[in-house]
């Protein structure tokens, strides 16, 4: 804006302040409650703990098998991310660099799967996994493998779209120079394109990891006691009679840490990737 008057600047301050409070209140609640003794969260709300305690951070690992859920989530989200990035890179490279029959249909079909309600896939996928298990013995239902496969596919459409957009912004002269030097397509991809597209690849990886880490619907149906992820496991702090809210908040904070830290560190790549996509 050019020459904003004082009234505008004041309105701006007030609105931004209100929004910051709205945004950050849950984070403050998480932080303050996670340092409270149990009696504080069982009575009326208070901002300041009556005594500071780190007990919840110790207890969370005992009340529910949080370490196991954590490991499951790490394995599932990590594998889904690695595979999703790899597959999206290959597909994005094909879409960006080659003309081929069916390209438009491919991109439209893949992108349109994004709009379909998850609930539409849930029931059939549940049945398909159960039936594959019954007929071939490959356990997809209840296993980490099934969840990895599902999650990698969830982030795939958007990842392909974002990477194809990012690769379009890398000049083709690079490819041609590599071809003159005698590089085949795959070597060009690995040695020339991947380093040049690294910011885009990082953005896609962050997105894929966040998608897999936070998913609830399929995790609640497709996992069992052994393969349960954090998204479902966190509800274990509520018993029949009581909820250990201080532990719930401590656990929420702990499980948010990896993604939030990753996001804040790498957000400019994600924003750049989103921008590349949005501008197209």
């Amino acid at each position: 804006m050019i020459n904003p008057p004082a009234s505008f600047r004041w309105l701006r301050r007030v609105v931004l302040l209100v929004l910051a409070v709205f945004t950050l209140t849950p984070v403050a609640v998480m932080l303050s409650s996670s340092l409270k003794p149990l009696r504080d969260v069982q009575g009326p709300w208070r901002w300041i703990p009556s005594e500071l305690t780190f007990r919840p951070y110790v207890d969370i690992w005992k009340t529910v098998p949080l370490a196991k859920y954590f490991t499951n989530s790490l394995i599932v989200a990590g594998s889904a991310t690695a595979l999703s990035v790899l597959i999206a890179l290959l597909a994005g490279y094909a879409v960006s660099r080659y003309r081929f029959r069916g390209k438009k249909i491919f991109t439209i079909t893949v992108l349109s799967t994004q709009m379909f309600p998850g609930i539409l896939f849930l029931l059939p996928l549940f049945l398909i996994f159960v039936n594959i298990g019954n007929s071939t013995g490959i356990a997809l239902y209840g296993s980490r493998g099934g969840l990895i496969l599902t999650y990698l596919t969830f982030s795939l459409p958007f990842s392909i779209w974002m990477l194809a957009g990012y690769l379009d912004s890398i000049p083709r002269d690079l490819d041609e120079a590599a071809a003159v030097d005698g590089c085949g397509p795959i070597r060009t991809l690995v040695q020339i394109i991947v380093p040049a597209a690294l910011p885009g690849i990082i953005a896609v990886a962050v997105y894929a990891f966040m998608t897999a880490w936070g998913e609830v619907l399929f995790a609640s149906v497709m996992t069992n006691d052994q393969t349960r992820t954090l998204a479902v496991g966190l509800q274990g702090y509520a018993t029949q009679t009581d909820v250990y809210w201080n532990q719930v908040m401590a656990a929420s904070l702990v499980v948010s840490l990896p993604v939030v830290a990753g996001f804040l560190l790498l957000q400019r790549y994600l924003v750049a990737g989103l921008t590349a996509g949005a501008v197209k």
């Binding site: 929004l19 849950p26 880490w213 954090l230 719930v248 908040m249 929420s252 957000q267």
Partner: peptide
Amino acid sequence: AFMLPYALPVFAAVITWSFM
């Protein structure tokens, strides 16, 4: 700060709201 709700895992954020 504004992007935090987008970065936080849905289940952790929403469970906090349910406490609130």
